[in-house]
């Protein structure tokens, strides 16, 4: 499914979303009013330029459109792998982007992320996983690394990893595993205005967002240790 098809399905009432390079930005009309749309496409590798581009637009929304909801579209294969980018502290620019998403939340902007293609490691951490809630399309690819690469690095037989992945969501790629572990709220079969508007309405009603992913992971039995560990630390 192309980005335009996804945009038209999410925003049948109209949008002015444009793509510059691999950065996606604009506004769209929904039953809940105008929303900001930001993100990346074509499995973008996130470097300083995209990170600062997204961050600057978030700050514009916070300053110029108080309370406007933000819809992040996530399609990233991770960070740019480059010495020049690391020389200027790429982790710092990704942290800055994450802080801007966090600021928008504190200033009362509801944010929803939708993984439309790939969602990998640093690129996913810097904005997709910083939204109030993260959703994924059915064919989204969410991962840290694929099982073949993991077998190489960990020196554990690939067949063994495949076998274990059947019973544990902890390490194998897949949006379904992230759903069970609480990081993805729901998987959508197709992009739809109704699903998006329900997600925005639900988040707006929930009020100031607290990080409920651990509790969700426990309730869905995909991540059973984290929530109790936090409770034990608070009680220690």
């Amino acid at each position: 499914m192309t980005l335009n098809e996804i945009l038209d399905s999410l925003f049948p009432a109209g949008h002015d979303v444009a793509v510059a390079g691999q950065l996606v930005a604009g506004t769209a009309q929904t039953a809940r009013g105008t929303v900001a749309v930001l993100g990346t496409t074509d499995a973008a590798a996130i470097g300083h330029d995209i990170a600062l581009g997204l961050a600057g637009r978030i700050l514009d929304i916070v300053d110029q459109h108080p309370g406007r909801a933000i819809v992040f579209l996530v399609d990233t294969k991770g960070q740019v792998l480059s010495r020049a980018e690391e020389l200027l502290c790429l982790n710092g620019s990704l942290a800055h982007l994450a802080r801007c998403v966090d600021l928008a939340r504190r200033q009362g902007h509801v944010s929803i992320a939708l993984v439309t293609g790939e969602a990998v490691s640093g690129g996913f951490l810097s904005f997709g996983l910083m939204a109030d809630k993260t959703y994924a399309l059915a064919d989204a690819q969410v991962r840290v690394m694929d099982l073949k690469a993991m077998a190489r690095v960990t020196k554990i037989a690939h067949e063994r990893l495949v076998e274990l992945a059947g019973s544990s969501p902890t390490f194998a790629p897949g949006a379904e595993n992230y759903l069970r572990m609480g990081a993805i709220e729901a998987i959508w079969d197709t992009p739809s205005a109704a699903l998006l508007e329900a997600a925005l309405a639900g988040q707006a009603a929930a009020g100031a967002a607290v990080d409920g992913r651990m509790r969700a992971g426990l309730a869905r039995q995909g991540r059973r240790l984290a929530a109790d560990t936090v409770s034990a630390v608070l009680a220690a």
């Binding site: 490691s121 996983l129 840290v144 993991m150 960990t154 390490f171 992230y178 572990m181 990081a183 990080d211």
Partner: peptide
């Protein structure tokens, strides 16, 4: 990497915390 998904989600939770 042995707990790749749990680790990535945990880092996201650390970021927000």
């Amino acid at each position: 990497l042995h707990e790749a998904n749990a680790g990535l989600i945990a880092i996201s939770e650390i970021m927000r915390a």
